[in-house]
Write a protein that binds this DNA or RNA. Structure first.
Lengths: 356, 356
DNA sequence: ATATGTCGTGAGACCGGTCTCTTTATATGA
DNA sequence: TCATATAAAGAGACCGGTCTCACGACATAT
């Protein structure tokens, strides 16, 4: 009957102390596991705590210690396999070090990211891992630093910000994937991303505000340039934000006078959309078009043909970010670094060799 | 230079009050947005706060208000698409109501679940959404109720626990999927789950500790029974926990004297493993074996053939759970309910019609 | 002119822990 | 035997907010 879940004042150290007939300080020592207490008293306090079903109020604990035991993570979208895998890696690293993880979604929107960061700072997280939506806006992140909260950037770097970053080796990854395509005889290659498009096509690579995408594009362009192929920017397309947009992008691309023979997808979501687009256009891979996607997503290994992908080792990426942040929180004096996790090209069946 | 991120006492209301030359109480009123303050003073305080870059300490706020603005979620594994989609739904509902979400992984282990729950209670979350690993162990969940923290079960129900649950209509889903298979002429059907196997095969359905799986199995068995098929439990296999185990399960299953002609996968991870198993055995779907999987996972729509699936509307499921919990937190007097979200069978190409 | 009410502000208790400092009891050494 | 060191327990400040209550000033009612 007395089960009704109303206000319900919770059991505090003071309550335990009273039942155990000791001072609040002593009970706190036992329950908090610090200081010195005789075994006899310790037992009595523990018994009282068990009887009352005492649970420490971590909030109060954090208040006085100044440490919350929480790591804040701001990601683009947990629904995206890239992030959910990364979060798993981060959580594992965090848990191992005794931290918990609180996750916030930015939806890749700067404003949402800002408020998420503010909120987490307000919750007094011990450290923050952020996937910055844009690498050219850093005031809110600078504020994190000024607040004295350790910060690690994830997946994207901001050189102007003097802070650790854990990313894949995106430039190298795109470079080697593109070289692979060129090596197979492809001469007209397209790069497709879900980034929001600026009107009038891509004119300046340096203006891409997401460093991961920028570096991938740089790698892509480098490979084309070193192979002496003309107009490297011509087939770079942004705006593949959903299936409909992607269908449009692909259709436009393939109806050019000399259409690309191979597509490089900036992430697995874009890759999946491209795959579906091609499928719905009745085109077969790799006979009609070759493709390579970033991320070893579930779907890439069960299609016909299975998709050649760039394995980003996302779990390791997340774990590394988590470990790095923990080290910072624990005050290890480390030089600010950009940690790059090597990627690898996994050859499967989605790239054709073009005859000579 | 003064950027070094050391202890760094943060700016408090008292600091702002001093700069604005008002009392702490007044500054708090302005910054906390409560009580009455004249516009003049309000402006002065805001100016001081801006100058000092004041950020409220949510911890302290939670301490005195008793509300943390956080919803705790304990899931089996965020890496699993089912959960990451659900978490997205929960977060969206939570954010809409001004709550944040803190996620903990249980890895479907009871002990990990217990400590996650304890920890979140300790952090004084305003409410809890839990995917119970086992439906026959409820002491820790009962403790949640006794602590006065609103609780909503997700994906699985525990009738003995007087608490809301949001689940799919698993029985009905399995029933209709199985009926579909039977209608297509299948007579020997297997059900495959990743649940840990008890030795000696499945003897008693009621002993399945995960209610979602149990209800699915019940639906499966009901369909077989109503069709007058013998030995409904014969082809139910547990233990498809990883690719290797699944390969073994499938191989054993298909080397029976009269092997099943159709497989029902308990979730999309199992489904994917089954698909890969069949692929590696050189069997084709649906000619050699038919299959249906739970969850509209990415991979199911791009295989050849695409997989017939049971759409669980996971996002809605999560959203509903989030909304329900918020309603409870806000004190709405609601009858304890089990909310079932209807599923639907999405026919694609993985089920063959068996000749008569 | 006095009583009553409202508004804006200040003082300080409180939330539930941690932690420093002080006091008391017991052991050790000269 | 008395001084001193040491262990164990208690008292109370503190963290940074919220919030109740008291107080003074001014407006309105009587």
């Amino acid at each position: 009957m007395e089960d009704s879940a109303h206000p319900k004042r919770s059991v505090t150290v003071a309550d335990v102390a009273k039942t155990a007939k000791v001072s609040k300080a002593t009970a706190a020592r036992v329950l908090g596991g610090y200081g010195v207490v005789s075994d006899k008293i310790k037992d009595e306090v523990m018994a009282a705590a068990a009887a009352l079903e005492y649970r420490p109020n971590e909030l109060a604990r954090s208040m006085s210690t100044g440490r919350s035991g929480i790591i804040g993570v701001v990601v683009g979208d947990i629904e995206n396999a890239f992030f959910s895998l990364a979060v798993r890696g981060i959580s594992d690293a965090a848990r191992l070090a005794g931290f918990n993880v609180i996750i916030a979604n930015s939806g890749e929107q700067l404003e949402a990211e800002k408020s998420a960061v503010d909120l987490l700072i307000g919750k007094r997280v011990d450290g923050l891992i952020v996937t910055p939506a844009r690498c050219d806006r850093l005031d809110h992140l600078q504020h994190v630093r000024r607040a004295g909260v350790p910060l690690v950037l994830f997946d994207r770097a901001i050189p102007e910000l003097d802070v650790d970053a854990v990313t894949g080796d995106d430039r190298e990854a795109a470079l080697s994937a593109t070289r692979h395509l060129i090596g197979r005889g492809h001469r007209r290659l397209a790069y497709i991303s879900a980034m929001e498009a600026e009107e009038g096509g891509l004119t300046d690579i340096a203006r891409i505000s997401n460093s991961a995408v920028r570096e991938r594009v740089e790698g892509f362009v480098s490979a084309l340039t070193e192979a002496g192929l003309p107009n490297p920017l011509h087939y770079i397309r942004l705006g593949a934000t959903d299936q409909h947009q992607t269908d449009a992008v692909i259709k436009r691309l393939l109806s050019e006078i000399s259409p690309p023979t191979a597509l490089l997808a900036s992430d697995s979501l874009v890759g999946l959309r491209i795959f579906k687009s091609l499928q719905s256009l009745g085109l077969s891979i790799p006979e009609d078009v070759s493709m390579i996607s970033f991320l070893d997503a579930d779907w890439t290994s069960v299609t016909v043909p299975p998709i050649t992908i760039i394995d980003q080792r996302v779990y390791e990426l997340g774990k590394l970010a988590g470990e790095r942040l923990v080290a910072r929180i624990e005050g290890n004096q480390l030089a600010v670094e950009r940690l790059r996790v090597a990627t690898s090209l996994v050859l499967r069946g989605s790239v054709a060799t073009i005859g000579r």
